[in-house]
Each structure stands twice: as C-alpha cells, then as structure tokens.
C-alpha cells in the first residue's frame, strides 16, 4: 500500500474532532478532483463502524485503523507507530491537526522520519508537483510561505481554516495496522486526569469567540457576556490580564502567550489591541470590536468597530442577535 497523503485522525471517544473533519473533507475533495490518493489513519479506543462511516462520508476511501487504549496517553508510542506506518505507505504529506495532542507526537514523528515539519498551517494549495503552505510568524506580523517540491513533510493544520467541503460519500476499505513491538524508551505514566470545571470547547476550535478585555470590570459581569455567547453559540476567551485576574481560564487566553485562533466571527469587548493580543486573533474571518476609546488600536484590526461602552452595547447586541436568530429559524 502506498499513498500521497496520510491524514492522522483525532477523535474524542469515537466522535470525530471538527478539525479532523475539516482536514478529511479538504483532502477528500482533492482526492476526487485530482486523483490524489488519501489514507486516513485512526487509532485509540472507542473506534466503531460509525466512525469509519463518518470518515467515508467526507470523501475518504481508505482507512488504516489500530485499536489500542494505551496510545491516547503515550505520545512516545504514537510517534513510533505513525513513523513506522509512514515508512510503509510513503506519503508525500503527513497531515495532523494542530492540537495539543498532535503537537506532542508530531516533532518526534518528523525526527524519526528525518523530514521537515511545518506547524499551525493556515492555508494549503495542493498540486501534483508542488504543495504551497502558509503560516504566521513574528507574532502574526509576517506570513511564512512554504513550497514543497518533491520532499516528504509533516504538517499540523489549524482548526477552522480549511472549511468543510461536501464530497461524495464512500464506504471505506479498512486495513488493520500490524504493529511491531514499539520501543518504550519514550514512555511515561499518566496517573490522573483533572477535568476542567465545565467541558467547554477548546478556544481554537470555536466557530464564534467572544473575547473580553480589561474593559470588563467585575467577574459578575461575565453573566452579560455569557448571554451574548449563548445567543451566537460562542466560546468565551480573553486577554492576558483578564486571565491573570482569574476571570477566564488560562487555556482560553488569546494571543502570543496564549492560543492563536481563527473563528468565523470574533466579538472583542473592551480590549485595547496590544500586539501580543492581536497576534492570536488576527486570523479570525470577521472581527467586531467594541471599545469606549475611539482611538483604541484594536479598531485597526477590526472589520466593524463600535465606539461605546460595552455595558450599554452588549445587552442591546444580544437582544438584536437573538431577534435575528429567531427570524432566520
């Protein structure tokens, strides 16, 4: 068996992660349009017929699968397994999601295969002879353009950037992976998992983000923001000072020392627009900023800017968006 593109699939207990759906449908479309051979690799626990079906629906014809419940917590073993598989199927491109999980094993895989890796990819232009990729560097101030000609490479793709292509559904063929004994030099013991209070969607996978800055004065005022988030199905993120005040969890901090995100819509409330914050939000498709200071730099990074007090704007915006939602139903 050989292929052009090997997609490493991520799932939560048998449910495809959004970012993996995006990657699979993107390459499913390329497979149909250009005859590129794409193989999806899925591993871990809770792998079912339904999961295979879901992958087939995205335009994928071939799946390699490996059921093993130890792997979820052992990036060292995952890396060995994926490197072995890549040596067998010889893909030009190995594609992973840019999630915490993949970022553990990806550099080890690339090193084992002796190839280059490019993380947090925002754009892929796949042609038979050349693959063009783009990512951001220098705190979002510059774009790095990468041209792959004939070499194998590994990439991790940012959630929310590839969209969801509609493809012809297939019933995929399933090959069970035969693994050799994996070397255990890079393993550790996971003793416990601390689940964070409420299982919120990771901020980098959110379709809509409501980001708050120091313009929000008290923790109780989060109720107002929550109401808005609920109406637009959004996830709440924030600037660093708001995390430091303990209003929002660190995993939901946006920016240079937090997460970089690419939601469809970002509503920024009471944020000044320092470069360290903007670095993380600049790839949102549409940005609305509300700030009472008409000279706030955040307006330079926004598509829509309202000069005003968030305490008067947000409740009205929530009400109007709710109305619109009901109308469109």
């Amino acid at each position: 068996m050989s292929c052009d593109v090997l997609v490493i699939v991520e799932h939560n207990e048998g449910r495809l992660k959004n970012v993996s759906s995006e990657i699979l449908s993107f390459f499913g479309k390329i497979a149909t349009d250009n005859g590129v051979k794409v193989v999806a690799f899925i591993f871990g626990d809770h792998i079912s017929e339904k999961l295979y079906c879901d992958i087939g629906k995205l335009g994928i014809r071939e799946i390699v699968s490996h059921v093993n419940n130890e792997l979820d917590e052992q990036p060292g073993l995952v890396a060995g397994m994926i490197a072995d598989l890549a040596k067998k199927v010889k893909p030009k491109l190995i594609v992973m999601a840019n999630t915490v999980k993949s970022r553990d094993s990806a550099p080890m895989i690339a090193q084992k295969l002796d190839i280059e890796m490019f993380s947090d990819i925002l754009n892929i232009d796949y042609k038979k002879t050349v693959i063009n990729l783009a990512r951001l560097v220098y705190g979002g101030k510059a774009i790095e353009k990468i041209k792959l000609l004939n070499q194998q490479a590994l990439i991790t793709v940012r959630p929310n950037v590839l969209g969801n292509d509609e493809n012809e559904a297939f019933i995929p063929t399933i090959t069970k992976l035969k693994t050799n004994e994996l070397p255990r030099t890079q393993t550790y013991l996971t003793k416990a998992k601390i689940t964070k209070e409420k299982v919120q969607k990771p901020i980098n996978e959110a379709d809509v983000i409501i980001a708050i800055g120091r313009g929000l004065r008290r923790v109780e005022d989060l109720i107002m923001v929550n109401d808005l988030a609920r109406v637009v199905n959004g996830v709440i993120g924030s600037t660093r000072p708001v995390v430091d005040m303990g209003f929002v969890r660190r995993s939901h901090q946006i920016g240079q020392s937090g997460r970089s995100v690419s939601p469809r819509l970002a509503i920024l409330l009471g944020i000044s627009g320092q470069i360290q914050f903007v670095a993380g939000i600049s790839k949102a498709k549409t940005i609305i900023a509300v700030n009472k200071d008409s000279k706030a730099t955040i307006f330079k990074s926004a598509d829509y800017g309202i000069v005003g007090d968030i305490y008067s704007i947000v409740p009205i915006l929530t009400r109007e968006l709710k109305k619109l939602k009901l109308q469109n139903r």
Partner: peptide, 20 residues
Amino acid sequence: TKKAIIKIEPEKNRKKTYMI
C-alpha cells in the same frame, strides 16, 4: 535534509474598518 523553499512576507492588513 532536502528543504522546502521558504519566503517570509509582511502580513496584509485587513480591509478598511467600518466605524460606528
């Protein structure tokens, strides 16, 4: 290692802001 060809360019600015 056979290396990819890499170019760094300034990031383009967003279209003009609609200010209210």
